[in-house]
Amino acid sequence: MLVFPAERLQALTQAIFERVGAPPDIAQRVAEALVESNLAGHDSHGVIRIPSYVEAVRRGHVIPDARPTVQKESAVLALVDGGWAFGQVSAAFATDLAVRKAREHGLAVVGIVRCTHIGRLGEYPTMAAAQNVASLIVAGGFGGPGATAAPYGGARPLFGTNPLAIGFPVKDRPPVIIDFATTAVAAGKIQVALAKGEPLPPGAILDRHGRPTTDPRDYYEGGMLLPFGGHKGYGLAVAVELLGRVLTGADLFAEPGRGGPVYERSGVLILAIATGAFQDVETVLAEAARTVARIKAVPPAEGFAEVLVPGEPEFRTRAERLRTGLPVPETTWHAIVQTAQSLGLDVSLFGLPATVGG
């Protein structure tokens, strides 16, 4: 395992995306999002994605200089056309729009269509919580030729990972952030397990014949993801599909060759609610803090050091990795170096090794 300073990885990542045609501000936004995912401990949505993002640009699935626009709008609703831009750009734009509307009107709902991979969903409720806005975000429509997840009881993939995230601000503490895929593992975590040479937990995937397996290679040889919690995770996956794809009308915006097999019909829905919608903001934030304190005061069960609230592991990991650096598997780093070199970039100019042994 290699370890690099976050700022060096971010500088290289931004340079890579500038080389494939992204303006500096867009390249910076995508680089920040990827490195922040690593900092939070979600390596599956971090710099490991660089080679696949570059390939998506080369294939025309992503338009590197595209910017999102508002397709239709009212006081509390908006539909954002991502224009096949980098998903992190579209989702940040839509989150900011939802937050502004919620702060003015109490709540807002914003959909995104023609939207590519938006990265770690928990990033967007974190943005909203920083402005005292509670939020829910769902991302669906990853089916079709790129389907990766079987429905409960099924032996053929129909959905994607169909993730969701919820955020709530807390007085004098980091926000509560709930962020998970509705599958037992996210597809990116299989990529990480493969890079590390580690098995997957039981109950995470089936092989191409519909048989349970823990070998991450089986997933890439025609296997499929399973919903977490059996029928409960499956029920959430269906809800995400209906809200993210069906409600936004994402199918109507599909274009041949754009988005790729996974994201050509994807849609995102953001619900934002001002914490002052029903009572004084400070009252709500203080009660959220008391609620978190009551949770933290519960004695830990055997095998646990303490009770954690959702989002707490990520905030702790971020502080630790800012101090110690970001761990990157050797296979991941090799792929990143190859991608950089294919674009005429010398990674050593960023204070990073051009070879694993460097």
Rank of each mutant, 00 (worst) to 15 (best):
G276T: 09
V309M: 06
V35L: 09
Q131V: 01
H105V: 12
G188A: 14
V238W: 11
L236D: 00
T291V: 02
A11G: 06
S348G: 14
F350Y: 13
R59S: 07
L200H: 13
S44N: 05
H117Q: 04
D207A: 12
Q28H: 11
E264I: 05
A92N: 07
P353F: 08
G82M: 07
G46K: 06
K171C: 04
P310M: 05
A6G: 10
D215W: 14
A102R: 07
W333G: 12
I112Y: 01
F168K: 02
V268T: 11
L308R: 14
G311K: 05
Q131C: 03
L308T: 09
P157W: 12
P227L: 09
P300N: 05
A91C: 09
L308I: 04
R103P: 00
L343P: 06
L242H: 02
T95Y: 00
R114W: 12
A102I: 02
G235H: 05
A250I: 05
R173Y: 10
G260E: 06
Y152P: 00
T339N: 05
V238C: 06
E264A: 12
A319S: 05
T116Q: 05
H117Y: 08
A40C: 03
A297F: 08
A286I: 06
Y124A: 00
A354Q: 10
E73K: 08
M127R: 14
E255K: 11
K72G: 06
L352K: 11
F142K: 05
H42Y: 09
S135G: 07
P169C: 02
K296D: 09
G41F: 10
D215Y: 14
T317C: 14
Y234M: 05
H42G: 02
P199E: 15
G144C: 03
A319F: 08
R321K: 11
Y152C: 01
A289D: 10
G244P: 06
R59C: 04
G41R: 11
G260V: 08
T213Q: 13
Q279R: 14
I177M: 00
V176S: 02
P169A: 04
L326A: 10
F159M: 06
R103F: 00
L252H: 15
A128S: 03
G325P: 05
G358E: 13
N162T: 04
F278G: 14
R245M: 08
H42M: 14
F228I: 09
D96I: 03
E320A: 11
A91D: 01
F86N: 07
A165V: 04
V262K: 07
G325D: 08
T331W: 06
M224V: 04
Y219L: 02
A286E: 14
G60R: 03
P51I: 03
A78P: 10
G188P: 13
L352S: 13
R245G: 01
H42E: 08
R217F: 01
L200M: 08
G160Q: 10
R156Q: 09
V185M: 01
V307I: 13
A239E: 01
A94F: 11
M127F: 13
G303V: 14
T161Q: 01
I48R: 14
A165G: 08
A78V: 15
F93P: 12
A239P: 01
A237E: 02
F168N: 06
G351I: 13
V113M: 10
G197T: 03
I270D: 00
A6Q: 08
H42N: 12
V109Y: 00
A22K: 15
L9K: 07
F304Q: 15
P23M: 15
D65H: 13
R8D: 14
F168E: 09
K189I: 01
L194K: 15
V54R: 07
F86M: 09
